[in-house]
């Protein structure tokens, strides 16, 4: 077995003295593990940081074997954010979520492409939060738990959609939501509009919405909770949103 693919490093676990078992999100082969020899070398270490984009070659005698990776052309994104707590938290959150939620060796090219777009915009603080929220929305959809945000579940209108039903995952218009506000989840406007510029508060509301469904539909059935890195992103984003409001 032998293939080549583009991959994004999700993480690496030390194996023996100099090797590592590396998890990549590949475009055509999904979340895929493999052994990397010489993982601690100066040349290889940057490519094994979460969020690094690599050209991967995977080889194994049989398809079901762990196999070994040869990684080339690493494009490292982590260095841009090592000193930025919020962006670093976002990078670790999306990596941990992909690692924890995606089944092994099941291709999800749309999620790979979305992750790539997220990395491309990681330095733009007004843009990456919305890409991250939409990526999580895509994660739900790819795993068969997509939210229906096109029209109001009650009236069928597709305007002024402001909330989501926690039971059905369908949008509800402001008018129909009015009597049930305490029971519905907030739907921030950027999630249904073609815009990527969002405030921290809107991004937080978006992550609360996707987090609610990720937790209940993907993690809870397996008796697991959302990755710690995602909780930490929520806390950090919450603090950042509060600071922005105070300054404003």
């Amino acid at each position: 077995m032998d293939w080549r693919d583009r991959g994004i490093t999700l993480g690496a676990r030390a194996f023996g003295e100099g090797s590592a078992i590396v998890t990549l999100l590949t475009r055509e082969h999904g979340r895929h593990l493999g052994l990397v020899r010489g993982a601690k070398s100066k040349n290889m270490a940057p490519a094994l940081q979460a969020g690094s984009e690599v050209d991967a070659r995977w080889r194994a005698r049989l398809g079901e074997h762990l196999g070994s990776y040869t990684l080339e052309g690493g494009r490292v994104h982590a260095h841009q954010v090592l000193s930025k707590p919020l962006e670093l938290a976002a990078l670790t959150s999306i990596s941990a979520l992909a690692e924890a939620a995606l089944p092994e060796r099941e291709p999800h090219p749309a999620l790979f492409d979305g992750f790539h777009v997220f990395l491309e915009h990681l330095e733009d603080g007004d843009v990456w939060p919305s890409i991250l929220v939409k990526w999580e929305l895509g994660l739900l959809r790819e795993l068969g738990f997509g939210l229906d945000l096109d029209a109001c579940a009650v009236s069928g209108v597709n305007e002024n959609l402001t909330h989501v039903s926690p039971r059905t995952g369908r949008a509800v218009s402001a008018l129909e939501a009015e009597p049930y506000l305490d029971r519905l989840l907030e739907l921030p406007g950027f999630m249904i509009r073609e815009t990527n510029h969002v405030t921290k508060s809107e991004a937080l509301a978006g992550l609360r919405l996707t987090g609610y469904f990720l937790e209940r539909r993907i993690f809870a059935p397996h008796d697991r909770s959302l990755p710690e890195a995602r909780q930490s992103l929520m806390e950090r984003l919450g603090r950042s949103a509060d600071e922005t409001q105070r300054i404003g």
């Binding site: 270490a45 940081q49 979460a50 969020g51 982590a78 090592l82 000193s83 707590p85 670093l88 938290a89 990078l91 670790t92 990596s95 890195a229 930490s232």
Partner: peptide
């Protein structure tokens, strides 16, 4: 370490030391 995990830990410690009256520095990269 100047790695994603190392720096995520550094940021967490900075948060936890928020109330302490100390200067927080890190090694140069």
């Amino acid at each position: 370490d100047a790695t994603v995990d190392g720096q995520a830990t550094a940021h967490l410690i900075m948060d936890r030391l928020d109330g302490a009256d100390v200067k927080i520095t890190h090694l140069a990269h």
